[in-house]
Design a protein around this nucleic acid. Structure first.
Lengths: 363, 363
DNA sequence: CTGTTAGCGCTTTCAG
DNA sequence: CTGAAAGCGCTAACAG
C-alpha cells in the first residue's frame, strides 16, 4: 500500500477514523513520480498528453499512481513555468443587470471551448472597484481581459499592440483606447425601435437614457435616436430625457418632467411612447408609471426598451433583444486571437438587435 | 535612465514609437532588486509590509524602482511559495437566478474585507459543469469553496475536518456531507407566508415547488408548508404542486392541473392563493396566469413567493425576502475561519426572511 | 523511450 | 538592518 504524500512519520491523524485529520498536503508531481517508480519528466509528459512517447508499461504505472494519490496538477506552478495560466479576466460593470449575466454565459461557453478559465470580477457600478480589480487581474497574470467598462481610463489599459494585457471591450468603448469592441449595432437597433413606434402611430417619443458619463453606448443610442427622428418625414416629435438611476432626487425630478410631458401630450391628443435605452431604465420607468398611473398604466403610455429582461414578457413591454450570448462568445474569440499572437488592427463586431413586439406598443 | 526589464540587447521595438512592441515581459522581483541596487529579499520585505526593518534610504530606492518598472508582484509565484493563494472558489448553480447574484454581492464584499479573491464558477444548472468546475478549482488550489450545490455528491467534497478543501454550503445541504451551511430559515419563512395568507382569508393554498431532486431547500420548504397548514385550526385546504421548469411538457401539465384547481376553488367560492417556493417558479406562474387569465390575473388568484426579484414590485406580488447579501457574507466568514484553522463542528446559519406584502395578497 | 538539470517569480531561513 | 541560498510544483531543454 502506498502512503499518503505527507505522512512520512507524522503523528497526524492520531486516532483511527477520518476525524480531525489535518489536511494531508496534496500529492505533487514528485510524489507521483516516486509512487510510479520513475522521474517527474515522464509524469509531466503524461499530463501533457505526450502519450505516444511513453511505454505502455510506464504509462500504466503512472495512471495507477495518479489514481492512488488522487493527484491533480497544480495550475499555478504550471502557469509559473509555462508563462501562461489560461486565465481570462472578465470585468463586469454590473451583474445585477441581466444583460451582464447573459453575456457572461456566452463568455463561459467560449472559455470552455477554448480552454480558458474565466476570472469574473464584478465592479458593482463602482469605478474604484473596477480599478482595483483591473490591478488584481494584472497581479494574477491573466492572459487577457474582457471589459464591460464603467469608468476605465485609457491609462489603465494599454492600447492594442503596445505592451499591456490584450483586452476586448464589451458594449462600451473607452475614450482614446484602441481595442477590439463587441456589442450591439446601436444605430440599427434604435432605428428598429423608432420605426416600430412610428409605424404604430406614436407621434410623441421620449428617449430615456442614463447620464452619458463615459458610457459610449448610451451616447450612441441617443444620437441614433435623434438621427432616426430627423430622418422621419412626418411631424412626429422626439425628445431625450436623462434619468440618473443612482441619484434619487435627480431621478424624481426627471420622472416628474416625464409625467408632465406625457400629460401634455395626452391633452394634445398625441400618442406618447417612452423609449428606454436599456433594461434598468425600463424597469425604473415601469415602476414609476405603475405607481403614478395605476395598474393600467400600460394603456396610457407605450414603453419600449433595448434589452429583453425576464420580466418584459410579464409587463408586456416591447423590447429590442440583443444576442447577448453571442456577444460574450465573440469577445472571447477576439481575445483568444490576440493572445495567440495575431495582432491585427482593432476590430469591432456589431450584432443586430431583434424587435420583440408586445402589448405595450400594439395597443 | 533604467532599461525595460527584458531589453538587455534585444532588437524589439525596432522603430521609435510605442507601435507594435511585443509585450515587454513584466518586471520581476529580480528586475526591481537590480534596479534598486539591492537583493530580492529586501524587495520581498517591502512588498510584505515589513517596513520597520528597512532603512529609509533603501526603502525610497525600492519605491522608486517599483514605480519606474511598474512592477506588480506575481500572485501565482507568491502562492506557490507560500502555499496559499488567497483564492476562494464560488460555485453557483444558476446565475440567472437573481438570488445567486445577490448572494454573490455579499460574497464579494466579504472577500474584499478579508483579502480573498473570489473565483466565480457558474454551473448553469448542469451537474456535469458543476463537477468540472469543482475539479478545476481544486487544480487552481483555491483555499476553500462556497457551494450553491446543484448535484454535488458527497464524494466530490470531503466532509469538514477530513482532508478535502474547506467548504461551506449555501442554501442547500448535500446528502451525507457534514459541512457548514448558511441560508434561509425555511420553516420560519414558510410559516410567515402561510400565516399571512391565512390571515388575509385565503383558505385554499397551493404550494408550488420544483422537483426536489437533491435540493434540500425545496424539500424543507415543502415540508414546512405542510406543517404550517397542519398546525392550522381552520378548515383551510393546502396542497403541493410540483412544477418542473426544465421540462416543458411536464410543466404544461402541472400548470393545467393548477388551472383546474383554481377554477374548482373559485366555483366553490374559496379564496385561492399560490405559494411559489422561489423566484423562478413565481415567474413561471405569473407568466402562465397572465396568459391564461389575462392582464387582470392578479384579481383572480393571489401569488406569494419566497425570494424578492426586481420584478416583484412591478407585478405587485407578495414576497418573502431573504437577506441575500448577509448570507453570502456569512458564508465567507465561515469559510475564512476554517481556512484559518479553526475546526469546530459543522455549523449552520439560518437567516430570517422578511415579508413584503403587496397588492396580490392584499386584495 | 527515459531521466537529469535548470530554472519560472517569489518567500524564507540563516548568516552576516 | 541586509543579502545569499534553498526551494514551492512544474516544464523544457538536453543528454542518455
Amino acid at each position: 500500500m502506498s502512503m499518503a504524500p505527507g505522512s512520512t512519520d507524522s503523528a497526524e491523524n492520531g486516532g483511527g477514523g477520518p476525524t480531525l485529520a489535518r489536511a494531508p498536503r496534496r500529492a505533487t508531481i514528485s510524489d507521483v513520480a516516486r509512487e510510479a517508480g520513475t522521474g517527474k519528466t515522464s509524469i509531466s509528459r503524461y499530463l501533457n498528453g505526450e502519450l505516444g512517447v511513453l511505454s505502455p508499461d510506464l504509462r500504466a504505472r503512472i495512471e495507477a499512481a495518479i489514481e492512488r494519490l488522487d493527484y491533480r496538477p497544480n495550475q499555478m506552478a504550471r502557469g509559473l513555468k509555462r508563462g501562461r495560466n489560461r486565465l481570462l479576466g472578465l470585468l463586469l460593470a454590473d451583474l445585477a443587470n441581466p444583460y451582464s449575466v447573459e453575456v457572461l454565459q456566452g463568455v463561459e461557453a467560449a472559455c470552455h471551448a477554448l480552454g480558458y478559465m474565466p476570472l469574473i470580477c464584478h465592479a458593482a457600478n463602482e469605478v474604484e472597484m473596477e480599478r482595483r480589480y483591473l490591478q488584481l487581474l494584472t497581479t494574477y497574470r491573466v492572459e487577457g481581459v474582457i471589459v464591460n467598462a464603467l469608468g476605465v481610463r485609457e491609462s489603465m489599459l494599454k492600447p492594442v499592440g503596445s505592451g499591456g494585457i490584450p483586452a476586448v471591450l464589451i458594449d462600451r468603448t473607452v475614450d482614446g483606447l484602441e481595442a477590439d469592441v463587441v456589442g450591439l449595432d446601436n444605430p440599427a437597433a434604435v432605428r428598429l425601435g423608432t420605426e416600430h413606434l412610428l409605424a404604430r402611430g406614436y407621434d410623441d417619443i421620449v428617449f430615456v437614457v442614463q447620464p452619458f458619463e463615459h458610457v459610449s453606448s448610451r451616447r450612441e443610442r441617443e444620437a441614433a435616436f435623434r438621427a432616426s427622428m430627423q430622418a422621419t418625414k412626418g411631424a412626429a416629435c422626439g425628445m431625450t430625457q436623462v434619468l440618473d438611476l443612482h441619484d434619487d432626487a435627480a431621478a424624481e425630478a426627471a420622472l416628474a418632467a416625464l409625467d408632465a410631458h406625457v400629460a401634455r401630450a395626452a391633452a394634445r391628443g398625441a400618442r406618447c411612447a417612452l423609449f428606454a435605452a436599456n433594461a434598468p431604465v425600463a424597469l425604473r420607468l415601469a415602476l414609476h408609471l405603475k405607481s403614478a398611473l395605476g395598474a393600467q398604466w400600460q394603456q396610457r403610455v407605450a414603453l419600449i426598451a433595448i434589452d429583453d429582461p425576464e420580466w418584459a414578457e410579464l409587463a408586456g413591454i416591447t423590447t429590442i433583444r440583443q444576442p447577448t450570448r453571442e456577444i460574450g462568445y465573440r469577445a472571447v474569440e477576439f481575445l483568444h486571437e490576440r493572445i495567440e499572437g495575431a495582432a491585427p488592427a482593432a476590430r469591432a463586431a456589431a450584432f443586430e438587435g431583434e424587435l420583440v413586439a408586445r402589448a405595450s406598443t400594439l395597443g
